[in-house]
């Protein structure tokens, strides 16, 4: 009745990919995370609950695209916020280009899931914000902003107010706004999570194009397995309570990526592995609901 595809091992890499991972490994390390811990601070203090992050370590190489994935409550957003300097860590080290991270800074751009464009600034002025804060003149900032708006294809909307844009456009402006600072790394916290499926896949394509054309490293948090496989070089899989790394997967799908690959054997193999890691066999989850039949006999939905 059911046919199961024979999938390759998710660790099988094509020669090109092996070569790619080898060159990536030779690049300089941009971000180094060593034994990062974050304790749960609840109303009754830290002690009782397991830590949000219990010792997370990994390295990010220059111009790598890394996705962080995990079930809800695994601390992936917290991890990203600590890297961005928005939340203090309870232990461990975060080194950005060899320097300890203490607070937010323009070298780590962030794009959030919620829309964070400044409503009182036009699209162009939003993108100018970073350069203006670092003391660039108005004209230089404006030229800079227009260039980045061009890159995300929103030149025509330069003088619109943020509330006049669609969700996808808002996130494109947010990406342009971050990139206008020339950050070494772009930290993205489920940036497409609030978008509908079609806009979302369009945004994924955009992001890959931008990443290809700009010297930037991306750390991308998501809970969407397909999104992670489509975008990432490596996927860091986090487990919950305490948040820890279950596995770092080298995505076995060739570049350049496109949506059509989502049915390729290597894609499916990677996805299957991710599913195993994130949703390990859960006897509770597979049980049927204790329902009484409330339809007429013979009136079957799944005949």
């Amino acid at each position: 009745m059911e046919e199961t595809l024979r999938l390759p091992d998710y660790r099988d890499l094509s020669p090109e990919l092996s070569e790619r991972f080898r060159t990536i490994a030779e690049r300089e390390t941009i971000l180094e995370i060593r034994d990062l811990r974050k304790d749960f601070v609840g109303p009754k203090g830290a002690a009782a609950m397991p830590p949000v992050l219990g010792g997370v370590s990994f390295e990010v190489k220059r111009r790598e695209f890394i996705c962080i994935i995990g079930a809800s409550g695994c601390g992936k957003s917290t991890l990203l916020r600590i890297l961005g300097g928005l939340e203090p860590r309870s232990g461990g080290e975060v080194l950005m280009n060899g320097k300890v991270v203490a607070g937010p800074g323009a070298d780590r751009g962030m794009v959030f899931q919620e829309y964070t464009l400044f409503p009182w600034l036009t699209v162009k002025q939003n993108v100018m914000f970073g350069p203006r804060m670092s003391g660039r003149g108005r004209d230089a900032s404006e030229a800079e902003a227009l260039q980045w708006l061009d890159m995300v294809g929103l030149t025509e909307r330069a003088n619109a107010w943020p509330h006049q844009l669609s969700g996808g456009m808002k996130q494109r402006v947010a990406i342009a706004r971050s990139l206008a600072n020339y950050p070494a790394i772009l930290l993205m916290d489920e940036p497409f999570g609030a978008l509908d499926a079609q806009t979302r896949s369009q945004m994924q394509r955009h992001l890959l194009q931008i990443w290809k054309n700009v010297d930037v490293t991306v750390l991308f948090v998501t809970h969407d397995l397909d999104e992670a496989i489509l975008l990432a070089d490596r996927i860091v899989v986090l487990g919950a309570r305490p948040g820890r790394i279950l596995e770092v997967i080298k995505v076995p799908v060739d570049r350049p990526r496109h949506a059509g690959q989502s049915l390729s054997p290597h894609f499916l193999a990677a996805k299957k592995r991710l599913e195993q890691l994130i949703h390990p066999d859960d006897p509770e989850g597979d049980k049927d609901l204790p329902l009484i039949r409330m339809t007429r006999v013979g009136d079957d939905a799944e005949a």
Partner: peptide, 11 residues
């Protein structure tokens, strides 16, 4: 979130 966004932009 607006303050955080501004901070990560270097404000």
């Amino acid at each position: 979130a607006l303050l955080e966004a501004a901070q990560t932009l270097g404000a």
